[in-house]
């Protein structure tokens, strides 16, 4: 019976070490676990595939470095798909560090697309404080909300901004979000108030909350949830990257955690039975 008692008192540092090794090894040696594309991710992909070349979409970078491992791969995969289909991207940020996240993603992707030009195919309008109020204001007067791009140049100088006065000429809105302000605020204003199709990607923590908006009302067209959502999107655009590689490590870590949950439960029920018999 001592073994069951030991199950209940495993040193947490042993678990940390095993998780560390379990995550590190698959990053070095790829295991290649199977990955299936879920309906919510497919819907986002289909929405972008259905847009005409030249259509402008808005991507809001509502996250920072703390959630970069989960969300940056989504940004890269979405940009890959957009530039492949000649869809033009207007980027903004509701989080201050979102501007840098956007620049990093664009720098990485644009290296593979030499024809992509800043101001024609892509623009980064920078950060604006205010969250939901800012989104509401953009929907009524886009230019007064973002009179310049992130570099301080007037937006009128850029062909991509021609005719953009509100959300009317945007194909859809995508929010890559790690919290508030983020995807929920875009759903509330861009879709529920102004009827614009909205989709996005979130951290895994946020995903169960946002999944409720992927419904019959199409409040969200689709959703990329956490690293898995990003990996599925990389699979769809056929550009396996950080998320795909990370899913191997993710799976191994989950197996280790499940094993320890089982060990803990076996120990708990076995010792409880023993206590009842003693009583």
């Amino acid at each position: 019976m001592k073994i069951f008692e030991r199950f209940l008192h495993i040193d947490r540092r042993i678990i940390f070490v095993l998780i560390f090794i379990g995550v590190a090894l698959p990053l070095i040696w790829t295991l290649g676990f199977n990955l299936e594309v879920t309906e919510n991710v497919q819907s986002v992909y289909d929405l972008l595939e259905g847009l005409e070349p030249g259509t402008r979409i808005l991507i809001s970078f509502d996250y920072g470095p703390s959630t970069k491992p989960e969300i940056q791969p989504m940004a890269i995969a979405l940009m890959e798909q957009a530039f492949t289909n000649r869809i033009r991207i207007i980027a903004i940020a509701l989080w201050p560090m979102g501007v840098q996240m956007c620049n990093e993603a664009f720098e990485k992707v644009s290296a593979e697309y030499p024809n992509i030009e800043y101001g024609i195919d892509f623009i980064n309008l920078g950060y604006k404080v205010g969250g939901m109020v800012t989104i509401n204001h953009m929907a009524k007067d886009f230019r007064s909300t973002f009179p310049t791009d992130a570099g301080g140049n007037p937006v009128d100088e850029f062909p991509i901004m021609k005719g953009i006065k509100n959300f009317d000429k945007l194909g859809c809105v995508i929010s890559l979000s790690a919290g508030d302000p983020g995807l929920k605020q875009w759903v509330m204003i861009a879709h529920d108030t102004f009827g614009k199709p909205v989709c996005g990607g979130t951290t895994a923590v946020q995903a169960p909350i946002m999944l409720a908006y992927v419904n019959e009302q199409q409040q969200l067209v689709g959703l990329l949830g956490g690293l898995k959502g990003a990996a599925e999107y990389e699979l769809l655009v056929n550009k396996p990257g950080f998320a795909t590689k990370g899913m191997d490590a993710q799976s191994v870590a989950h197996i280790i955690i499940i094993i320890f949950i089982l060990i803990g439960n076996i120990g708990y029920f076995a010792t409880r039975k023993q206590d009842i018999m003693k009583a």
């Binding site: 959630t67 951290t203 895994a204 956490g226 990370g246 490590a249 993710q250 989950h254």
Partner: peptide, 11 residues
């Protein structure tokens, strides 16, 4: 989902 998120940060 929270576990997945935290493991992603470790990754």
């Amino acid at each position: 989902y929270t576990v997945m998120s935290r493991i992603s940060l470790l990754i």
